[in-house]
Amino acid sequence: MTEQQQSLDAIHDIKKMMERSSRFISLSGLSGVSAGVCALIGAWLAHPYVYGYKNLFIDINQPYTYDATVYLNTWLFWIAMGTFVAALLSAFVFTYIKSKKDGTPIWGKTARRLMINVLIPVAVGGIFLLSMMQYGTFGLVAPGCLLFYGLALINASKYSLNELRYLGYCEIILGIINLNFVGYGLYFWAAGFGILHIAYGVYMWYNYEREN
């Protein structure tokens, strides 16, 4: 019995160390919730501009130019930037707190590997969507975001928490459905980046981080 217990303990140690050394596991569920809340606020702010209730341009007297600087003159651009930065910062804060609590280093090999593997699909998606916007295909931006983000999450799950994979599948399914309802992109975007993030975050927090 004690021999068996010792072997089990050893195997358990081995497994734990393999996980710790190869995956970034400090990702907090609360990061998901906070990023989701930021996305919902962002979508709410963007809604009147996307659906034409308010004028898109900040300075309507500024002459129209045919290059990227025209985006800087739209409220939407600044709402999108603000949402992105707020979501990233708030997500970082909760993950930082969790890593301090667990005693795992925040910036190391595992974090670097996760970062690279998230950035590749996200950057490719970003470039692709920007060029779509150049050609005026705005309707595909929201489903495009969902699809590329879903792929990034599935890729990331190998270097972080396994559950990210299922979040990724959900984002992709949502993105594919959205392809058939192109005019409703913002609602799908809010569901994918807002509600799914919050649902995932609550699930993770409830199962792994709640104080017993």
Binding site: A10, D13, I14, K15, M17, M18, R20, S21, S22, K109
Partner: peptide
């Protein structure tokens, strides 16, 4: 335990 830890980490990473 320390040696098990070292070996486990090295199994998952090319070099540490």
């Amino acid at each position: 335990r320390v040696r098990l830890g070292i070996l486990s980490a090295l199994m998952m990473n090319n070099s540490i």
